[in-house]
Amino acid sequence: MSSESPALSVTGLYKKYDQFEVLKGLDLTLRPGAIHGLVGLNGSGKTTTLECILGLQDFDRGEISVLGHSPGNLHSAQGKIVAIFDSPSLNPNLTVRQSLRQALLLCEGTTRKPEELEAQLGITRFSNFKIRNLSLGNKRRASIAHALLADPEIILLDEPFNGLDAGGVDEVLALIKSLNQQRGTSFLLSSHQLPYLEDICSHVAILHDGQIAANDEKSRLLGSVQSTIRIQTDDNARAAEIIGQQAGLSLQANSNSDMLLVSSNQVGPADINRQLVEQGLAVSEIVAERASLDSLFRRITQGTNP
């Protein structure tokens, strides 16, 4: 596998459940060493996409390659590809340590040790607990340790932050960052937790209506989004008129009599404030909302292009 080849490539993926077409020609490429976030509304097909990539369910059309392996043949990568699922996906009758010993059997040649990962994920004191007796957060930690034992090149995570407390989320984020930086591990993360993805991802893909609606480096995607300025004055109708005449500003359609929402490329809130005050208006609120993954996601999924 050359460093130029994508770690993961999905081309023209179609998947239908009965008459409902979930994926309509999805294309996705994951570069080696990238942390790629996959976001989408509930039922948009994120988990279906991951399951198709992992060969856990059939798809109707399309091509998928993970480190050069087809989905039905990922086992031939011998542990270089692993996944962490929404549910813990471990045998509930085993203890944490037994479960990690089982993981060792699945991935010969790994340099990682169960004790080391238990300590790293803060589950050492639970190592003799049966998986079924753990809290959801600790089950998730155990399943992450189970996956990391394989010393993988690419990790696919489905909703990795579900059930974790704030400390747990920080641990997982730190773990992803360190694996990515120290070992060059590639990640595909599907999640609803947009702030966490924004914090950690190098690339983001937004899945909407069965296709990838936006997919690029995070900085480029966010750079393409106009910032929004929220304004409230004593006469919003007059304020809207003044803003409408100003170059570089445009009033958003979802503005109302209580609140004006203004898209701005170059003009900052200080300039707008000055103009409104000069026109004799009393500005009671002016807030600049920075371009975020959340705002980009909302715009795309609510039908407005960035």
């Binding site: 992992l54 060969g55 990922l74 699922f85 549910s87 996956a147």
Partner: peptide, 16 residues
Amino acid sequence: DRDSGALRHLLIRCSS
């Protein structure tokens, strides 16, 4: 194993 999801790890990592 299918119910618990444990089967998935076997299939992805080492066995057909």
